[in-house]
Nucleic acid binder design. Structure first.
Length: 292
DNA sequence: CAGGTCCCCTGCTGGC
DNA sequence: TGCCAGCAGGGGACCT
């Protein structure tokens, strides 16, 4: 479900409601939510108990909490929302959601009880995992297990010229490259389609057939459309609700092509087309975005 | 490495 | 009204 802007909204909610508090108790329901944590859910609970949450970080669509033990050792709890994950901050006695997978009982450093953090995920494509932190340019480093995820376009470590070089060196559909999180992270199906429409490039075109300036333009538009979505979506979340679904209202109002099949292209009026791509769908204007 | 396929899971929508 | 196929914003494993 969420791409970079929606995940960033969630991160901000975590920074406000979870950072600075301590994990008193953790409860994971079922094994699936911790399937990326090989030692299993009980082990993950044990590792988290008593940890102080020092920071909420994000790269692309990956979130992590920096959690520190009493000796000052900092590690990461990775949180991925998958397609349908939500993080909620609620009173501990709030009724359990249907697809509740994890609860974190939090306390203030003074010991006073604080609201509960919950991970709810209908489809359970998301999940939690533990990782060591390794050097990577941030105050607390980067989780080792996501070291293969490239910087996203909204972080300082992002090097667009390098991404363009790597794209140009490959023979692959440009949309596939945009969705490859090892090349540039945070872009999903929606913002890939929107960026390609803005840049007037058809996603099936091969990266090595496009010029460097064109590739740069596509990436510029990807960053721009995500920044706009963030501006529109980052404003309204309730104090006790870290995030509902991140969707942010940007969706219905500002999308030019995603989900707009049959409706006129906002630029030229030609009906927007949808077609299968990589087991998903692509939306584009057949006139503005020629296959060449 | 490139590209295709399938899978994980639940719920909603639209066609018949 | 009911049933069923198709689809959903992610990502990884596996195959050729």
């Amino acid at each position: 479900m969420p791409e970079l802007p929606e995940v960033e909204v969630v991160r901000r909610g975590l920074a406000e409601h979870v950072v600075g508090r301590r994990v008193a108790e953790v409860s994971l329901r079922g094994a699936r939510v911790a399937r990326r944590h090989a030692p299993g859910p009980r082990d993950l609970e044990d590792r988290l108990r008593g940890r102080l949450v020092r920071a909420a970080e994000r790269r692309g669509k990956y979130l992590w909490l920096v959690v520190e033990d009493e000796t000052g050792q900092a590690d990461a709890l990775i949180l991925h929302l998958g397609m349908s994950g939500q993080l909620l901050v609620e009173p501990p006695d709030a009724p359990a959601e249907k697809h509740l997978h994890a609860t974190f009982d939090l306390v203030e450093t003074s010991g006073e009880p604080a609201p509960q953090l919950r991970f709810v995920d209908q489809r359970t494509f998301g999940g939690l995992a533990w990782s060591e932190l390794v050097a990577g340019g941030r105050a607390f480093g980067i989780p080792e297990s996501i070291a293969h995820i490239a910087p996203d376009p909204l972080e300082p470590a992002y090097d667009q010229a390098d991404v363009v070089r790597r794209m140009k060196a490959r023979h692959v559909a440009v949309k596939r490259a945009l969705l490859d999180q090892r090349l540039v992270s945070g872009i999903g199906n929606i913002y890939a389609d929107e960026a390609l429409w803005r840049a007037r490039v058809n996603g099936v075109r091969d990266t090595d057939s496009l010029t460097r300036p064109t590739l740069a333009r596509v990436l510029d538009h990807a960053a721009e459309v995500m920044r706009e979505a963030l501006e529109q979506g980052g404003t309204s979340f309730d104090a006790l609700y870290v995030n509902v679904n991140g969707a942010s209202g940007y969706f219905d109002r500002s999308l030019a092509v995603y989900g707009q099949q049959g409706r006129p292209c906002p630029r030229c009026g030609t009906p927007v087309r949808r077609e299968a791509f990589m087991n998903r769908s692509s939306h584009y204007c057949p006139r503005c975005q020629r296959r060449r």
